[in-house]
Structures are given as structure tokens and as C-alpha cells.
Design a protein around this nucleic acid. Structure first.
Lengths: 210, 210
DNA sequence: CAGGCAAGGTAACGACCGTTACCAAACAAG
DNA sequence: CTTGTTTGGTAACGGTCGTTACCTTGCCTG
């Protein structure tokens, strides 16, 4: 009775194809509006494939979210907490953050997380914790260190970090999520991040002016 | 052949009941996962009601979004552009903005707009334009005036306004949208707005320190 | 080569959904 | 009271969906 976790050991290329096709359809149509037939139409083969590999529709969805999320959310992390220059660290982190948020995969997962929050509360919870939540906490550490070095003043570093990631998302992210515009180019992203960093730094910096 | 705009003149209380019940179910389950039966179960009567009043499911959905949005999005507007003190204006505006964003109605519409963007592009477009878009533009005007008065320096007022509304949404809005926490209390909202205003002002202010 | 076994395709089942045809009840007009 | 009309409830229809039973195919083993 292979109900659970169908043969996760074998690295099947078929599985990858199914996941890829399913992700595309899910991201376009949403969970409820996506039919297994539509996925198979894109992936080839038959429905029997999906039910052998993932059990059912929810299993397929969970697999997509967890596997893609693990891969994409890790890019939101800061690699070097101990950056020498705060402005450089913020800029680099902001760009990482923004290109992560703007990636098609994260856009798709984000969209689904919003509407399927009631159906998959655990998935959504871990999505937030390991993505935006962790990124914000890491940034808060960076800010805390800069505060201890006396470079900035901040009452609540966690809150300040939240403000920063909020500025990074901005209306740009909202517009992309709503399908009102395409993701920004690298140049646009750099400009937006630079502007946010400037605003953030000069609002938090203790002494000198640039 | 009453296909269009079924008798919009008469102020029917029945219509209000249907809209209310439908909004609740739509907001909870999403568009695709909501059945007409589920709405009727909550509103009473029979499906014939809905099809007489709204034509079909899409018509019902459009009615919900437009009527609710008109009412809620107007609260995002700034009443007095010519505020005397910038900090006061930003604070008042930020609180308006945040309580608007956190209202159950806007949360629900926001959730649906995200996933049904492909199905209702015009609705989503006008939702953004008349809501976040207009709010940001109005704020940009306020900032522009303050800049002309020499109170602040800002390269791009539209962008700065975007940063501000981004800070207002913050992770709080994201968490509420994802169903990870309940909307903040008035006290929490005031604290978050005050913090954002402080960060924004000191990053943009030309001369003095507080 | 023969036999068993896993994998995949086909088609069907039962449930549900949006929509509408049909009918009964309420009501207005004469 | 009678008749025509409008409103609202019932039930059914066509279609789709998730899921699975059944069967064919090809492969592995002896």
C-alpha cells in the first residue's frame, strides 16, 4: 500500500518533468482551477503517472512548493553576515532579495500561498518562515551589529529590517504579483534597491551626512 | 432579454444580502473553489436569485469587487493634501493606509486579485489604480510640496512615496494576507506607522536632526 | 523461451459545479 | 374572482474533475 512519500529515493527524470509542468500550470491558473488533465496535456503520459508518483493532487502541490521553495528561498539568505561596509551589505542583500522576489518561481508560489493559505496552512507557514521571515531576521542581525559598532541608531532592529524588506518589495512587487507589469530589468532593480538603501541608511545613520 | 446590468435602479435589500454572503465565501475559499450552492447555503433562497440578479458567477464576482472596492479604496485617499506639518500628514496618512490594508474587505479582495489576475485583468487593473496606485500618487504630491518648501530633499518623489507605502505594508501585511496572524490592533498599527514615519523622515529630511 | 511483474495508458465512475428548463406560488389588474 | 405576470424553488442537464479499476505492454528473471 504505497500511500506515503512514493519512492523518494530514486532520482527519476520523469518526476522532474511532471513537477515542472505542474508548476507551470499551477502558477498560471491557481490550485483550484488547475486540472490533472491540463498538467498531463503539458507533460505527456497519463494521469496514472501523477497518482503513482505523488498520490494525489495535494501531494503534487506539496512537492512543488517544498522542492521549489527550498531551492529559491535559500537565495534570499545573506551569505556573509559580517559585511565590512553596511551600505554594501544592504545593497547586495537588497538585490538578492529583489531578484528572488521577482523570480517566476517565487511569484508563482507567492500567488498560490495567498489563496491556498486555508487549505495548506503548514506549507504557508514554512514558506514564510524560511523565506521572508528568515531573510528579515538575518537582516536584523546585520543591523544589530552595525548598531553595536555605532554606525547607526535604531530602536528596534527587527522592525527596521521589516521596513527595509517592505521597501524592497514596494509597489513593484505588488504590480508584478497582480500581473500589471513584467518583472523589472536588472537595471531597474538596481535603481530601486539603491534608492531604498539610501533612504534607509540616512534615516538610521547616527552621525555624518553623505 | 435582461442580460445586462439587471435592474440596477431598484435598491433591493435582497441584493445586499447576496453580496454579503457571496463576499464572505469568496474571501474564504477563493473564486474557483467557491460554489454557487455554498453561497446560497449562507444567504438562503435559491440559485435562481443569483442568476436573476447578477447573470452568472463572474457577474456576481465583479459586483462584489467593484462595490466593495469603491467603498474601501476611497478610505486610502488623503483628505487634505495641504497638511501643515509633514510628520503629522505622513502619520495620519500612514494610519489610514494601514487600517485600510488590514480591513477584512480589502484583505479578501487583495487575496482574490492576486490569483484571479488572469481571469479578471480589468478588475485588477482598476483595483490597483484606484487603490494603492492612487494612494501612492497622492502621497507623492504631498512629498513634492514638502520638497518645494525645502523641508526635505528627494530625487524622485514618486519612488519615495512607493518606499513609504512599502514600509506601511511591511511584513505585517504579508503575514495577515497569508493567514499567519490576525490584523494588528490599533496600538500596534500606530507603533508601526510611527516607526515608518520616523525612518522615512530622517532619511529624507534635508537639514536638522530631531 | 516462458512466466511473472511492474509501469503506463484507457476508460469509466461518482461527485460536483454552473446553468437553465420547468413549475408553483404570490401578486397585480380588470 | 379571474387572468396574466412576475418571482422564486426544484430538479435536472451537460460538462468537468479527481480518482481508480482494468488491461495492455514491455522488461526482468529463471
Amino acid at each position: 500500500m504505497p500511500v506515503v512519500a512514493a519512492k523518494s529515493g530514486r532520482p527519476s527524470s520523469r518526476r522532474e518533468i511532471l513537477l515542472q509542468a505542474a508548476a507551470e500550470v499551477f502558477f498560471e491558473q491557481g490550485y483550484a482551477a488547475t486540472s490533472i488533465d491540463a498538467i498531463i496535456e503539458r507533460a505527456g503520459g497519463s494521469k496514472r503517472n501523477i497518482y503513482s508518483e505523488f498520490g494525489n493532487k495535494e501531494g503534487l502541490f506539496s512537492a512543488i512548493v517544498t522542492e521549489n521553495a527550498d531551492r529559491v528561498l535559500s537565495t534570499l539568505a545573506i551569505e556573509e553576515i559580517e559585511g565590512h561596509d553596511l551600505r554594501e551589505t544592504l545593497t547586495a542583500f537588497g538585490q538578492h532579495l529583489m531578484s528572488g522576489y521577482m523570480s517566476p518561481t517565487l511569484i508563482g508560489i507567492y500567488r498560490m500561498a495567498v489563496t491556498e493559505a486555508n487549505r495548506f496552512p503548514d506549507l504557508v507557514r514554512s514558506f514564510y518562515d524560511e523565506g521572508p521571515g528568515r531573510a528579515t531576521s538575518q537582516l536584523a542581525q546585520v543591523i544589530e551589529l552595525a548598531k553595536e559598532r555605532g554606525e547607526i541608531r535604531a530602536d528596534d532592529c527587527q522592525r527596521a529590517a521589516g521596513h527595509f524588506v517592505g521597501m524592497i518589495r514596494d509597489n513593484l512587487h505588488l504590480q508584478v504579483i497582480l500581473g500589471l507589469r513584467r518583472p523589472p530589468s536588472d537595471k531597474e532593480m538596481r535603481a530601486a534597491v539603491a534608492s531604498a538603501v539610501e533612504l534607509f541608511l540616512n534615516g538610521v545613520r547616527s552621525g555624518r551626512r553623505k
